[in-house]
Simulated assay, not measured.
Amino acid sequence: MPKGSPELTASRREEIITACEKLYETMSFKEITIKEIGAVTSFTRTSIYNYFQTKEEIFLALMQREYEQWAEELSAIADRNKTMSAETFADVIAKSLEKREQLLKLLAMNHYDMEENSREERLTDFKVAYGASLDAMRACVVKFFPDVNTESFIFVFFPFLFGVYPYAVATEKQLTAMREAKLDFKMHSIYEMIYSCVIQLLGGK
């Protein structure tokens, strides 16, 4: 661990994570290297190794940050509202994930690689954040829909998130291939998919 104040360490970690996030908007997971990340930070590339040993650890930290922010938002939803209809709940959950496209992309594309190539302590930190999002969602369902089987909701909803991004976002190459294959398909937005899933899990139509 580098020498310096906890604030400096946290600030530099955040800078590295944010640099990775920006690159991931235009580059693929395979294209991004620690050298590429270092080129857009304010300190040397070799300094990154004081904070992360692999690029997978940086990506895992990015996904950890996404889960932490989502868990905070879910907790705020539970705190702000006494009751919610299924439609309103589905709407706020869909909107909360619509702006977390990065999280859904990471889940769909590179989750296994990130976990496999990260140190155990970094993986544990990530699992704490993931667990917080599970707990926050569980608390929402228990509070607003006491008649719904909460564990069944969690068991279906969280694995469902792994498949949202590929069905909601396609490259022009993928769209062309589907048209040439004469597939009968319609792209749906992240919001539409999440909303529909939540409504169905809550017993709606």
Rank of each mutant, 00 (worst) to 15 (best):
Y165I: 01
A61R: 07
T83F: 09
E57R: 00
I154C: 03
S75T: 14
S42A: 05
I199M: 12
M84D: 02
F145N: 10
I16V: 06
G131L: 06
F185P: 04
C140S: 10
E180I: 15
F144A: 04
E15Y: 05
M193S: 05
K82H: 14
E87D: 13
L74Q: 02
S85W: 06
A86M: 11
G163D: 08
Y51H: 03
A170T: 13
R65G: 02
E98F: 06
E87V: 13
A129F: 04
Q174N: 08
F52I: 00
T171I: 06
M84N: 04
K105P: 07
A94F: 08
Y49P: 10
K35D: 07
A132W: 05
T26G: 00
M27I: 07
F157M: 03
R100N: 00
Q102M: 15
T44G: 14
I77W: 06
L60G: 00
S118V: 01
I77P: 01
R80N: 01
I58L: 09
A108Y: 09
E31A: 10
Y112S: 12
H111K: 13
T171K: 01
E57G: 05
A181T: 15
A71D: 10
V164L: 03
M27D: 09
I154H: 02
M27G: 08
F43I: 06
E15H: 07
E36F: 06
E68K: 02
A108K: 05
L97N: 00
R12S: 00
Q102H: 09
I37Q: 00
E31P: 12
T54G: 01
G204L: 04
P166L: 03
E192F: 02
A170L: 14
E7D: 08
A170K: 15
M187T: 11
A129D: 05
F158R: 07
I48M: 04
I16E: 05
L97Q: 01
K173W: 13
S85P: 13
V141C: 03
E66L: 03
Q64C: 08
E115C: 15
F126C: 05
V40W: 07
F157A: 00
T9N: 15
M63S: 02
F158I: 10
I16F: 05
V40T: 12
P159F: 02
A71Y: 01
V128D: 06
E192P: 08
T124R: 15
V128K: 10
F155Q: 15
L74M: 15
I199R: 12
R80L: 11
A10K: 15
I17C: 03
S47F: 09
M27Y: 05
S5F: 14
T41L: 00
R80P: 05
L123R: 11
L134V: 12
K205Q: 14
M193V: 00
T171C: 04
Y167S: 12
E87H: 11
C197L: 08
V142K: 06
Y49F: 06
F52A: 07
A108R: 04
V156K: 07
I194S: 00
I58K: 02
K22Q: 08
E25N: 12
A177I: 13
R122C: 10
T9F: 15
